[in-house]
Nucleic acid binder design. Structure first.
Lengths: 221, 221
DNA sequence: TGGGCGGTGTCAGCCCGGTGTCAACGACTG
DNA sequence: CAGTCGTTGACACCGGGCTGACACCGCCCA
């Protein structure tokens, strides 16, 4: 779990950082609001532990920007004040939880953990054609319900073809998209990999060859 | 949003009920712990507002039973005491939030709302896959009912894999999510930790390697 | 019928990931 | 403070599967 700690009192900040790391979390520590927004613009955090009373950009403002931009980060706000008014305001700003100072460290841990349970990103769709199924995120492919054991290049090749629908894909394009390195134009890589892929796909053939053109998914005719 | 209010002081209970209803929530009110457990066994609530000092079955006990049975209900505990110790204990019992009496009604509403929001997309508190079980909040993991003794990094690695379902997770992603930002791109940390995690998980293997891709939970096929 | 494109068989090199080991580091204990 | 233990990550090494070149073949079409 990735956590960002934003706290201007350096001794406290470091201590929180070390403590959370000891609990197995990946922690970054920053000392002011601007630095926080900096980190947040480049890195995904599960939880942000945010001191409300920050010099420079105030904690409230940081919180507002977090909830505006990165909805996948939860905010635990630390505050020195304990009045009801403050607590309500904090929640109103989009903080997901708050903790009045001084706090017990075990309580901080418990709250960060609770916030860290977050939804996972949506799974991208699976590709289908003929009796083929390919799931890029799970890296599995099936033919007629039978799982295929494909090597990385074979998998990428099939994925590229499936993603192109029933369009003809030239060898040059396949080379560029699957190999993406500085491609020797005279390489036999596509040819060789295609052969092995076809062998694993079995009968009847599903990859059609278009002479002088390239390859296409689907039964001929 | 469905809310259950458990509070023995009837005047307060009714008042909370009416107030929350005015905020658009569906509220049931009960006056003691046994009645509460009764309702909880038949109805799904998003949030339970629970007085800690109840006659008969104590609030702590109710809370324990709620978290044991219906983990999809969030508990907001009301208590007369305000010490840090109490708060930690409450959270340890499985309460999700805590509100000391006396409180301002607007704060109660804000907190019930916040908990309700959290209840919707919450990932199930325990992660499961194959014969693996992992409870992030209690920091324990089991394989086939057998408790696993995992180091922090090993635990975080397994948690990250389990949270990704049967998706393939790349080493880079694992590095980013489990380790902190001092990310040496040539580190062997993932490799080494994965090895030790696998050793502790034992046979048969549950973490599949996808060459050039990463790792995935689950037996091949 | 011959040229050229694409399929096939084979093989050597290589890269990826697994493994064994060690040193550094921090926490705990006497 | 010294000693010990658990954790962590670097390093070196290994093995096997993957990969792509090469030579050859077969088929389609001029």
């Amino acid at each position: 779990m990735r956590v960002l700690v934003v706290e201007d009192y350096e001794v406290l900040a470091r201590s929180i950082g070390t403590g959370l790391r000891r609990e197995g979390m990946a922690v970054d520590v920053v000392l002011d609001g601007n630095e926080a927004l900096d980190h947040l613009s480049t890195t995904r955090y599960d939880v942000v532990v945010l001191d409300r009373d920050l010099p420079g950009t105030h904690g409230d403002e940081v919180c507002r920007q977090i909830t505006a931009q990165r909805r996948d980060s939860r905010v635990l706000m630390l505050t020195a004040s304990v009045t009801v008014k403050d607590r309500v305001e904090g929640l109103g700003l989009g903080a997901d939880d708050y903790l009045p100072k001084p706090f017990d460290f075990s309580e901080l841990v418990a709250r960060v953990r609770a916030l860290g349970r977050r939804a996972q990103p949506a799974t991208p769709p699976t590709l289908r054609a003929a009796d083929l199924t390919l799931d890029p995120s799970r890296r599995v492919a099936f033919r007629a319900g039978q799982r295929l054991e494909l090597s990385p290049k074979e998998f990428a090749l099939l994925e590229c073809l499936l993603a192109s629908g029933d369009r003809v894909v030239s060898s040059e394009e396949l080379l560029e998209r699957v190999w993406d390195e500085a491609a020797d134009p005279f390489t036999t890589a596509v040819k060789t990999t295609m052969r092995r892929l076809r062998a694993k796909l079995g009968d009847p053939p599903v990859i059609e060859t278009v002479r002088e053109g390239g390859y296409r998914i689907g039964v001929p005719g």
